[in-house]
Design a protein around this nucleic acid. Structure first.
Ligand SMILES: [Mn+2]
Ligand SMILES: [Mn+2]
Ligand SMILES: [Mn+2]
Ligand SMILES: [Mn+2]
Lengths: 219, 219
DNA sequence: ATATTTTGTTAGATTATTCTAACAAATTTG
DNA sequence: CAAATTTGTTAGAATAATCTAACAAAATAT
């Protein structure tokens, strides 16, 4: 069974591969806050266990086994986040740190019971999909708000950044998953967008923010 | 901050001291399933941190700091067990192993929220007291059933053994916390007792069982 | 009061996870 | 392309947690 340390490496490799297409040793080291030699040596350890493939100076690639293991940890993480928000009353900005620890608990029944109590949710509080028990992840082909055009209406479905800082920003603007946006205009100078939602008639969102809001456009 | 390993040693020392009055190296090693040299060296490590006092060939004694640290871990353990039973529908025989892992999570809000949701319980699902936030434990001066006399009536308030095996035995006899017992007779030959409770008119309980049932006698 | 058994200690080794320093390969820049 | 920079590797060491083997002290039983 993988140690907590190994589990965190697997998750980091999985996320890096998904977000950047590949995982370099330096990215991995950065992500985990360890030195490159440390990451290098752990990658060799994971390879010996058949969890990743690795050749000197090449990017690290998870095996199918490694991907599944990572997805199952992410499943526990996201179920936990959803449980904390839906059943325990936490805010979406408070749950990541707790889930980062709870995801390492070995107790299938614990997570199955959470899943059941919530009616088998498919996404976490930040809109990210929850892998199923086989480690399969459903693709949510969402666009970012910056790809939408003035005149369109859309609903916020997920975030590409779930940092506490970004979540705090969204909270301060009453933006949350499910918020319906009308796109009024887009400034070609800085790509910022003016939108209406809820009580707000005109709110300006910077390009940075627009890129991080993942939306479903109304037909 | 104490590691998971250190936390488990603190808990073991605390429990041994409470149950046997003192904690020897061999008891500690046994309790944790490690060799004596391992226990010996960890005790030295804990002493360096001011968590216990230790002199060669003498029993290990927790300091006030060590006692408090242990009690706070036990608090998390027992709150978790209660949460699993009361809020997640687990049986009292299923929760110890899960709590053994959850007790090491560092997230005060998580446990405070559990506590709140349950209305600040004072005992766990096996009747053991939950230490308060300062690490103080309320003494429940309970007698065991074997100390009671025929003719008396009593209610099961706690257990001095919460092993899965004993809990399974109690489940099979419909015995649980809160069960009211009428003591019909006591066999002087083997100290077994005949009792009535619920639908049962006459059930015989061995001395072993009677000793493990902690009761409050009706006045 | 010896002898035996149990308990505890020391020494030395192992595995996991991490680091820094030094060097080497790959990539980017001018 | 050559120089500079970034990225990756190796070597060597440190700390935490564990073990076994050997020995020593304490407790128990003749
Ligand atoms: Mn998260
Ligand atoms: Mn984690
Ligand atoms: Mn327990
Ligand atoms: Mn534990």
């Amino acid at each position: 069974m993988a140690s907590i340390t190994e589990e965190n490496y697997l998750k980091a490799l999985f996320n890096l591969s998904n977000n950047q297409g590949e995982a370099s040793i330096s990215d991995l080291a950065n992500q985990l806050g360890v030195s490159m030699p440390t990451a290098n040596s752990m990658v060799k350890t994971l390879q010996k266990q058949g969890l990743c493939k690795y050749e000197k100076y090449k990017p690290v690639v998870l095996t199918e086994q490694g991907k599944k293991a990572a997805a199952l940890i992410i499943r526990k993480h996201r179920l936990t986040e959803m449980f904390l928000v839906n059943k325990m009353g936490f805010g979406w900005e408070e749950v990541h740190e707790i889930a980062e620890q709870v995801e390492h608990i070995h107790a299938p029944k614990f997570f199955e019971r959470m899943d059941e109590m919530m009616g088998f949710p498919t996404v976490d509080p930040h809109g990210s999909p929850i892998p199923d028990k086989q480690g399969r992840i459903q693709e949510l082909h969402l666009k970012s708000l910056s790809e939408a055009a003035p005149g369109q209406e859309a609903v916020i479905a997920a975030l590409s950044d779930s940092s506490a800082e970004f979540l705090a920003y969204l909270n301060s603007r009453q933006l949350s998953l499910g918020t319906e946006l009308k796109i009024l205009s887009k400034e070609s100078f800085d790509q910022s967008m003016t939108v209406a939602y809820g009580e707000k008639e005109r709110e300006s969102l910077s390009q940075k923010v627009c890129e991080k809001l993942l939306i479903r456009i109304f037909d």
